[in-house]
Simulated scan of single mutants.
Amino acid sequence: MELDESKYLYLLFTVPLLVVLFLYNQYWKRKKHREFGDLELVKKLSPEKSVFKPILKLAVLLLALICLIFGLVNPKMGTKMETVKREGIDIVFAMDVSKSMLAEDVAPNRLDKSKQIVSQIINQLGSDRIGIVAYAGSAFPVLPITTDYSVAKMFLQSMNTDIVSSQGTSLDEAIKLSATYFDDKSKTSKLLILISDGEDHSEGAEDAAEEANKLGMKIIAVGIGTEKGSAIPLRINGVVESFKRDNNNEVVITKLNKEGLMTIANTTKGGYVNGNNTKEVIDYIKNTLDTIQKTEFESTQMANFQSQFQWFLGIAFFLLFIDIFFLERKTTWVKKLNLFNEKE
């Protein structure tokens, strides 16, 4: 059994509170009766008043309240088992988090644009497994292969240019680390979506792409930025204080290296797409996924949980209904039995 809205269980604390209020009310009534006169005389003035009925009414109301609370909690029980088969491919997103991705030639900036694109791609996926790699001067594993898209988006939004300490852009490191995410023995199709401005400060990106091709990986390169380029703003508390400069104190202009990214993608028989238009990227990725063979990579037994709230609500309303007919005077046949020694 699992509870859909367990937060409502805190309402159960109202049950003992109501019991305490009831006991206090009974004490207060008894105290007032003593002030009015002798208790035995007061009882004789209201001979039909039952001592047991108020307790019974309280018990019925509390039981109804408990059922209402469990109705809100919505307990679920597994009533049958289903075989769930998933078909898809393995996808790794390798995201450039170097300082050049802070350039604002693409709004709001290259890095935020990259996050938007990846998030939109994830929204289009069905049962594919995904992983995330961050890279700058070196590569860093952010999220291993998973089918939990909500967790992937959470990690995605937390990425920034400080996640990798060494600066620069090493596309070969990103490709090599991404390759480790895939199972060499698995027949599942392998796709690497490489998101970058293409400014590579290392050597060996083409060699890494060739090795990836031998492993059966396909690379789609998404170019973020403009060929005209832009300066890299340096912000303090969200305010641009200056721009990044080189050793000669010249403002660094970072540009999109479209050709480099295309070369890497073509090596693996993949493709290149301009990332400045999100819709264009999504359509391109979607069309590519439609052409890639899907593989069954998981078969599991899953309990099909069904809500049980209706039973608790039904019982609660029934108890509230019969409570209407519980009067506080003595019941004739119970009075004859004298269960509570109420006869004189």
Rank of each mutant, 00 (worst) to 15 (best):
T169C: 07
S127E: 13
E241F: 02
E280Y: 09
L171Y: 01
K85Q: 13
L125R: 02
G225V: 11
F326E: 00
G131R: 09
L18Q: 00
S230H: 12
T267H: 09
L289E: 10
V106N: 07
P108Q: 11
L21N: 01
I66Q: 04
N160Q: 08
E227Y: 08
K153R: 15
I130N: 12
E206V: 14
K44R: 14
T278Q: 13
L289K: 01
F93Y: 13
I89S: 08
W333Y: 15
L320G: 02
K115R: 14
I292L: 13
F140L: 09
G126M: 05
M101L: 10
K32F: 05
K57V: 05
W311R: 00
D162H: 12
N25E: 09
L12T: 06
Q116L: 14
L156H: 13
G137F: 11
K330Q: 08
A107F: 11
G37Q: 14
F318C: 01
P54S: 12
K99A: 13
L194M: 13
L18V: 10
Q301L: 04
T169S: 14
L111V: 09
K294Y: 06
Y8W: 11
T79K: 13
S150K: 15
K218V: 14
K31W: 11
S150Y: 03
V15S: 03
A103W: 09
K99H: 05
H201K: 07
I89V: 15
V252L: 09
K190C: 06
E298K: 13
E241I: 12
S119V: 00
S178K: 03
I132K: 10
M302C: 00
I282G: 08
P75T: 06
T267M: 12
K214A: 10
P233C: 10
V151S: 04
F340V: 15
T169A: 05
L339T: 06
K43M: 14
L65R: 02
Y181R: 15
M95N: 05
L313V: 02
L192V: 08
L289P: 04
E2L: 12
E82V: 08
K255S: 14
S189L: 03
I132A: 08
L256T: 06
K279E: 15
V281H: 03
Y149L: 07
I163H: 08
R329Y: 14
M159N: 06
M101G: 07
Y181L: 10
N304D: 15
R235V: 12
N274M: 03
T331S: 11
D200V: 07
G270N: 10
V60G: 00
D4G: 00
L72N: 00
N304S: 12
V42T: 10
K218Y: 04
Q167K: 07
K115F: 05
N266W: 00
G275R: 05
T268L: 08
L41S: 13
A221R: 03
A59E: 02
T291P: 05
E328L: 11
I145E: 01
K269H: 10
S307Q: 00
Q26A: 04
I292V: 12
K44H: 03
Q157W: 03
L18M: 13
K153S: 07
A107D: 07
S100P: 06
I122E: 09
F22Q: 02
N257W: 03
V281M: 10
E203S: 15
L65H: 04
E173P: 03
S299F: 02
I224R: 02
D38L: 04
N276S: 04
L68E: 02
I55C: 05
A134M: 15
A64E: 05
V106I: 15
S307E: 07
K187H: 02
V251L: 03
